[in-house]
Amino acid sequence: MLGTGLIKGMAQTAKNFVGSYQGPERLVTVQYPEERLAPKENARNFPFLVFDGDDAQKGLRCVACQICEKECPPKCIYINKSKDKKPDYIGKPQFYPATFDIDISVCMSCQICVEVCPFDAIKMDKVFELSTTDRFEALLLHKTELAKPNEYFQELHPTEAAEIDTRFAEEKLKAEAKAKADAEAKAKAAAIAAAPKPEPAPVDGSIPTPVAPKTI
């Protein structure tokens, strides 16, 4: 009969109305600035740069290969390659980004830069309270603001970070073993060739670089 469905619906909403005063567990809304939900594992919005160790400048994984800059669909990444080189995590001398800017007002959070990066240097962040009063300069993030320690990344994505860390450690071990073997071979060769000059390879020769202020 006409009207029975209406009455059923009205009863349901009346139950909700009364029930919301009776049982607070019905209210699903989280009172945001005071209460917060933990972010989801796969949440992502804007990219950041990962560095190892304590020094943001020294430990930056990025080698300024500019693949992300070229792949970025809205073209919001701006990289200037350095003239000199610094050693990476296995001690191999690499270029580093003299400037690395991301305009997050243009970024569309597609994660393509993360997918294409061969060095696991750029990852997606979960920060979302980014509102500012300046829509130009404040939304153009520079290298100092983008660089975040590996520990931060481990917190965001524990599994992925652990996998990357073990791979890096293995590569480093392999590289060290190879360097040692090379050094031994070289030393042997040198010893055979000419005894007076046994110079080892510069494994951890540090190039003095300007230390960026740590922001994170």
């Binding site: 909403t13 909700n16 109305f17 029930g19 919301s20 005063y21 019905r26 699903v28 809304t29």
Partner: peptide, 10 residues
Amino acid sequence: KILGRIQNRL
């Protein structure tokens, strides 16, 4: 307020 309560909101 009432619409919110009907939809289990505040």
